[in-house]
Amino acid sequence: MKGIVYNLLEVCVSREYGEDMWDDLLAAAGVDGAYTSVGSYPDEDLFALVAAASEALGKPPNSIIRWFGCSAMPLLAGQYPSFFEPHTSTRAFALTLNGIIHPEVRKLYPGADVPTFNFDGSTDDLLVMGYWSPRRLCAFAEGLLQGAAHHYGEQIVIEQPQCMLRDDARCVLEISLR
């Protein structure tokens, strides 16, 4: 996992719960915590931090991950406005993930292991997004999409008829406007 993810998590946690909370989570997770955005760190660090946060806040891990995705989006929008400005909707933004955003991510963070989504946008009011990753972070994708919807002033509903966490081969995210 690229250090940028840990940096974003640190900012989100510190903003919402204070800097001491981040110290506590690092200690509880037993991770080193010296993360730089361009470095690469074990995925286990993230899951240990999520588990620690789940314990500390009394919320299920997936809800923490979803919250993280949603809270990280405004930070990303501030840091990389050019990915957001050309669009006016969550749907249009999401459709640029494979072709534009992830290639750019690979340029900025060599070695970044980003997931590939497949899209079915054949109906106007529903965007179907397939997700597969050994990290099984579909909740992070959900959170990021919710964050993007806030950015574009939209309210969206995400259903997951298939999910790797329920032993499906892949996750399917169905996104519609509320």
Binding site: L26, T36, V38
Partner: peptide
């Protein structure tokens, strides 16, 4: 102790960033 720890983390993160940058 807490602040020292944060400072240490930041320093190590900076050094790591510098190492990566130099290597790149």
């Amino acid at each position: 102790v807490r602040l020292r720890r944060r400072l240490d983390r930041e320093r190590r993160a900076r050094q790591e960033a510098e190492r990566i940058s130099e290597q790149a």
